[in-house]
Design a protein around this nucleic acid. Structure first.
Lengths: 249, 249
DNA sequence: CGCCTGCTTGACCTCGCTCAAGGCCCGTGG
DNA sequence: CCACGGGCCTTGAGCGAGGTCAAGCAGGCG
């Protein structure tokens, strides 16, 4: 559908909207801005009065440790709302940054609050998206805590591919993933040098390749096996309990 | 207040309840059960129709990796609702287990849904608690991803102490924390042997001691400095934006 | 053209793992 | 009452995954 609000599109992917919901979503003002790579969108300690929605490109949530190093805790693909949590938490505890050049939308908290008050099903689904985010955080704890380098990187690549597919941005096991090897190090808790050797190994095993910001998975089975990847933690929008439940009313 | 529902107590700690809210909370049926240590409360793949609230003891959320090892992704102190997410996610992606012997309350999803529909402020605050959980997950990613053993263990101990304080269960820098060294290994991504050496080192530095299931922090400043501990990510209930905002209406 | 960013590879080192043995405490049964 | 066994804690020894440092290379851009 042409001229559909990105917010409408996000919900539309999850379940069938009523006309009232659709109208309310389309009515939400979104200020769209283009931003270059490696820029802060919001910073730890900020108290924003609006939320971000990634419309194009790749963003990340990260924290800086005492020695100036950065740990990425999440990547955000188009459709994600990285700081939706600022709706209920007074202070942000992480930075949200662009990784590649991005197009982002800014949505005022007040508009989202109104939406939640008037449309409980939309509220429930926004809550749900933050729960999926939490589920991904849990998997990342496992990833950095238990897997070794090869599986750890492989797991991350599997996740990115599936999430890009869900967002309709992958085809033929290929999607954009414009990260540097140093970026991957920050996300996996490995050094950039070791990321390089790990990617080389994955390439030599003919599992996957990451060149020119394009991720291609040549052997999904092999990569998933190597990384013990189970997609359940992504709670893919295709099976969406909240929508089912609430549409029973 | 005597005979107050644990659910009421949880919210009461966050903000001042209206009498309607209080009545609704007190009316929620909670089935209370005592369970021994190291028991599953719910399992990965379950589709529960009720939520757990920890009333006494220590629980954890964890996942098992292919080689049978376990990674703990969160600890739960009394007042926490470890699987509140099952309200909106169809399948659980983690196990929830008791660590020490626990008293837990079971609350039906239907009761919580009713509460959320009729009392938006309670709904917002439940949402908020899941956002705080997510914030803690993020910090755990940083902890396992970037800090080395000494700081990693120290950071965890700081977190536990603060959360137990928030729950009103710590005094004099001492609280119950009935974990084995193997448990701590599963939570930090370290081997039990190395946990032993790390705790020894923390003991020798006169920072903290963990004996007989009792955690004592002798030098908070020192321990926090060593682990770069910043408490902001706990979004302590004392400053609670949601409650403030919604009571302005 | 020169610089800067990112990729690649080698050499060396170290933090934390594994394996192994011994000790302590406590519950159970002879 | 003591012997035994099983958790859990403790410590030593050796090893290996991954970090650090360093150098060279390729490509894009002012």
């Amino acid at each position: 559908m042409l001229y559909q609000s990105p917010l409408t599109a996000k919900f539309h992917r999850a379940f069938t909207l009523t006309s009232g919901e659709r109208q309310a979503l389309d009515a939400v003002r979104i200020r769209i801005v283009a931003i270059g790579a490696n820029q802060n969108l919001v910073r730890e300690g900020d108290q924003p009065s609006r939320c971000i929605m990634v419309l194009a490109g790749l963003a990340s949530t990260s924290k800086v440790t005492g020695d100036g190093k950065r740990q990425v805790t999440a990547y955000h693909v188009p459709g994600d709302m990285p700081d939706l949590l600022s709706l209920h938490l007074d202070l942000l505890d992480s930075d949200v940054r662009t990784v590649s050049a991005c197009s982002v939308g800014f949505i005022n908290h007040s508009a989202i609050r109104l939406l939640c008050e008037r449309h409980p099903r939309l509220a429930a689904n926004l809550w749900r998206t933050t729960l999926v985010d939490a589920s991904i955080f849990r998997e990342w704890v496992v990833n950095v805590g238990k897997r070794q380098a090869l599986g750890r990187v492989a797991h991350l690549l599997c996740e990115i591919m599936l999430r890009m597919e869900d967002a309709g941005l992958a085809s033929d096991q290929t999607c954009a993933f414009a990260v540097t090897q140093a970026d991957l190090g920050e996300a996996t808790g490995l050094s950039a040098v070791h990321i390089n050797r790990t990617l080389k190994s994955l390439r030599e095993k003919r599992l996957t390749s990451l060149v020119n910001g394009q991720l291609t998975i040549h052997d999904w089975e092999g990569l998933a096996f190597l990384s013990e990847f189970r997609h359940d933690y992504l709670h893919s929008a295709r099976t969406n309990k909240t929508a089912e439940f609430m549409s029973m009313h």
